[in-house]
Amino acid sequence: MTERLPESPSQTAGPYVHIGLVPNLLGISGLYPHDFGASPIKNGAMGEKIRIVGNVLDGDGTLIRDALLETWQADAGGRYPGTEGADPNVTGWARRITDLKTGAWQLDTIKPGAVPGPDGASMAPHVSVFLVARGINTGLQTRIYFADEARANAACPILSKADRPDTLIARQTAPGAYRFDIRLQGPDETTFFDI
């Protein structure tokens, strides 16, 4: 017999989330020797080094400068950190902020491999994102897929469920360089998941 409990309600992370989660990035030294999630990879990580950059935009197209993004990804072989055979130099998790002045965020990582998905299908290479900011009541879940993985993308059982899959695909701007903007509203509103 188990007692069922309701999940605790979410609340906005507010404008000062940096103090709690990335104080050193904010310029507060003295709390922690280093922030958690500074990089998703360590020296020696296998795979293609990539950089993803982007902005987060509100319904007016204004850059959101107080957002925090967390990313989670598999290694180059498609294994999540901690699972059998995973690359020990891939931690997989990062915390990034939109710059308080420029509004840009950036992730330096390795390109993840395809990951086993539902019913034996394979999910195209992707980076999962959890996004919070002032004005966001419940953290938003989305995914970053890659434009140069057209065949895998077309077969991905998750991407194919998104009504606007284009909003989930990072544009390739140079070899190893991608751009992924997150739009909270508007005709190109990013697809967000309840997953």
Binding site: T12, G37, D58, G59, D60, T62, I64, W72, A74, Y80, P81, G82, T83, T91, G92, W93, V115, P116, G117, P118, M123, H126, S128, A133, R134, G135, I136, N137, L140, Q141, R143, I158, K161, A162, D163, L184, Q185, E189, T190, T191, F192, F193, D194, I195
Partner: peptide, 27 residues
Amino acid sequence: YRSTRLRAPLRPLVALPSTLSEETGPV
């Protein structure tokens, strides 16, 4: 809560069963 007016996604979330990408996480 005014900040939500321009920051709330207005389309419904795409609901799917969780996958390995949500069932794993940093430790």
